[in-house]
Design a protein around this nucleic acid. Structure first.
Lengths: 104, 104
DNA sequence: GACTGACATCAGCATGTACTGATACTTTCA
DNA sequence: TGAAAGTATCAGTACATGCTGATGTCAGTC
C-alpha cells in the first residue's frame, strides 16, 4: 500500500535538534551562526544536521559573504501537514462509524 | 523552546511498518491476524511494533476471544495533524513576509 | 487434560544514528 | 598576504533500532 505519510521526511523531523531547526526556520530565515546561538548545539553537529535537512530537500541555502543562510521550503511542511490531516480525518470518520472487521 | 511537534510520536511513526499499521487502523479496527495478513510482516515482528504503538499511547487493545483487536486513538493523530498545520502556517506566513534576520 | 491457535516477550545480532574532535575550504579583515 | 571567522566534511565511537528465532502465556477446541 502507498504510505499515507512520507516516512523519510518523518525520520528527518523525528530528531529533536532537526525539528528545532525547522521550527526556528519556519519563523525566519537564519544563518548557521544564528542557529548555533539559538539551539546551543555545537557548530559541527549543527552542520551535520543541516546537511540532513538539505539532503531531504527541506531547506535551501543562500550564501551571504562568509555566512550561509538557511531558508525553509514551506511547501514541504505543507505537504506533510496535508498528509496528516487526511490521515486524521480518516481516523475520525472510522472511529465515528465504529468500523471493525470480523474475526478471521 | 517547546517543540512544535512531538518528536517521540514522530519517531514512532517514522518506521514504515508502524506507519502502515496506523494507516490500516485509521480505516478500521483490526486484530493481529488481520494485520499480519495485510502487512506481510512476521507475527513476532508485528507484535514488537504493536507494543511500541501501545507504549506511545496511539492505540488501544480490545480482547475478543483469543484474538486481540487494535483500535487507533484518533485524537492522537488529530493532535499531530494540528501541530503540523500550525507549523505549516507559520512557515507559509514567514515565506510570504520574507523574514530574514540580519547578519550577526 | 491435552492440543492447537493467537499473540506477547525476550535475547541476540546487524545496521543505523547522533555526537565529538579534527580538519579542510572559503570569505573577510587587517 | 597572512590571520581570523564561518562553515562543511570526515572518521571514530557509543548508543538506538529493527529483525529474527525461540519460547512463554492465554483462550478455545476436542
Amino acid at each position: 500500500m502507498l504510505m499515507s505519510v512520507d516516512t523519510d521526511l518523518l525520520r528527518v523531523l523525528a530528531d529533536p535538534l532537526r525539528l528545532q531547526i525547522v521550527t526556528l526556520l519556519a519563523r525566519e530565515t537564519l544563518c548557521t551562526t544564528h542557529l548555533v546561538a539559538e539551539t546551543g548545539a555545537r557548530q559541527t553537529n549543527l552542520s551535520n544536521h543541516l546537511k540532513v535537512l538539505r539532503d531531504a530537500g527541506m531547506v535551501d541555502t543562500e550564501p551571504c559573504g562568509r555566512f550561509t543562510y538557511y531558508r525553509l521550503k514551506p511547501d514541504v511542511i505543507a505537504s506533510l501537514a496535508g498528509q496528516f490531516a487526511e490521515l486524521a480525518e480518516t481516523a475520525r470518520a472510522t472511529a465515528a462509524a465504529d468500523r471493525k472487521r470480523s474475526c478471521p
